[in-house]
Amino acid sequence: MYGKGRIIPALILFLGLMTSPMWYKSGDAGKMPKPEKPKDYTECVAPAQYMRTSHMVLLNQWRDDILREDGARIGKTANGTEYVRSLQNGCMKCHSDKKKFCDTCHSYASVKPYCWDCHLQPKEAM
């Protein structure tokens, strides 16, 4: 092998960079975020798995529907419970603690939603 002096350090650098997530002091992988569930309510506006993957789409739909197309403010769950289609008056009514609910997963997955650019943040999260 020729040029060992340059190639071996370069290869070590390459391997180090490629495996950096392994050396990086990542926390316990089993430590999943546990968003606090509301105590008084058992049913959400949509099934849990849908909410897990697509709640942001739902919020955008509500916005477009109500603010841009004059849609209904009140929605109904599968069991017929009425709810307000609104982030602050709907979602936050049950999931009242932003820090213990929204932020747990969002900070785990490095998601910074811009809801709070306009909406008022709950006081305790400020």
Binding site: P21, M22, Y24, S26, G27, D28, A29, G30, M32, P33, Q49, R52, T53, S54, V57, C105, Y108, A109, V111
Partner: peptide, 27 residues
Amino acid sequence: LRVDVVAIKQLALGLATLSPTITGQIG
């Protein structure tokens, strides 16, 4: 299609820390 990012991060982080697990529903 959207997937459960938290479950995926758990798997990816598990791969990086050599303790991979698949929990939850991943599409």
